[in-house]
Simulated scan of single mutants.
Amino acid sequence: MTPPQLRLAVQSRVIVDNDWSGDPDGLVALAHHLLSPTNRVVAVTSSMINPVFGQPEGAVAGAALARELVDLVALPEPPPVHAGSNGPFGDSASVAADAIVAEALRDDELPLLLVCGGPLTNVAQALQQAPEIASRLTLVWIGGALDPAADEYNRDTDPVAAEYVFGTPGLAIWQFPLETYRSCAYSVAELEADLGGSGRVGEWLWTRFTELPLPDFVQLGGVWPLGDSPPVLVTALADESSTYRETPNGRVYTAVDVRLLFADLLARLRLHERRR
């Protein structure tokens, strides 16, 4: 018999955008969004991979991985998955950008949060196609850095897109910069034990880490940050136990409740396995 459950309110619509064929931390975050009953994932979009990793069709490959995860979770109403551009921001449209625009223009009582855990390519293209959507959504971005001299992958993969997005009038941006998302450290041993031991979805996620083709210049130590996960705190949980400072166009998060974030992730994975 299934134990009784609390009735939880849905608090947001979410579009989740990421470079899914890169670091598997994005797929971990996607699984968390999909399994959270307090946000409704309405679309998943896939972005380019930095050319240094040698994936010229990274957006297409990433969309395939995201679809595989969506199918595995098996929601009653699974969100559609759309591939974006395989190159940096320019004048060309994409199916991913079209999907972002369409959802932003759709009337719904729930606020729309566009969660991006990779380069801002698809976001910039959507804003270029339809500038009026800037006031109809909030961008939640894993990227940038408090230190302007720091290298930061998501910003630096498509800096023109980042500049365009941050220069868009009327767009609210909640940012989790490098210094904040790096605090979401997870040991490799914990990843294997926690993800690999948390049902079929967790096992699938752990396999993405073991099968990731790491280039020779990447020297893996004992820690793998799950840096794409913090947006779940604002889409599905709560940020009262995290900290942020206000900016002219939104927020910059300076600390996140890592315990709440990952305890909820593992509980969601295990409950999903128990109930399926």
Rank of each mutant, 00 (worst) to 15 (best):
T2K: 14
D19S: 15
V28T: 13
L30N: 06
A31W: 00
H32W: 11
S36T: 14
T38R: 15
N39L: 11
V41W: 01
S46P: 10
S47R: 04
I49D: 05
V52E: 06
G54Q: 09
A63C: 02
A64R: 11
E68V: 03
L69P: 05
L72M: 08
H82E: 09
S92R: 14
A93I: 02
A99T: 06
L105E: 15
D108C: 09
L110R: 10
L114R: 00
P119G: 06
T121S: 04
T121H: 05
A126M: 06
S135E: 14
S135P: 00
L139N: 02
A145Q: 09
P148R: 12
A149S: 15
A150L: 11
E152G: 02
Y153L: 15
N154Q: 15
N154H: 15
D156G: 04
D156E: 13
A161Q: 11
A161N: 09
T168V: 15
I173E: 07
R182Q: 13
A185K: 12
Y186S: 12
L191N: 09
S198I: 02
R200W: 00
E203R: 12
L205M: 00
W206T: 05
E211Q: 13
Q219G: 06
G227P: 03
P230R: 02
T243E: 13
A255F: 13
V256R: 03
R259V: 10
R259G: 00
L260T: 10
L266T: 12
A267T: 13
R268M: 07
R270V: 10
H272R: 11
E273K: 06
R276H: 10
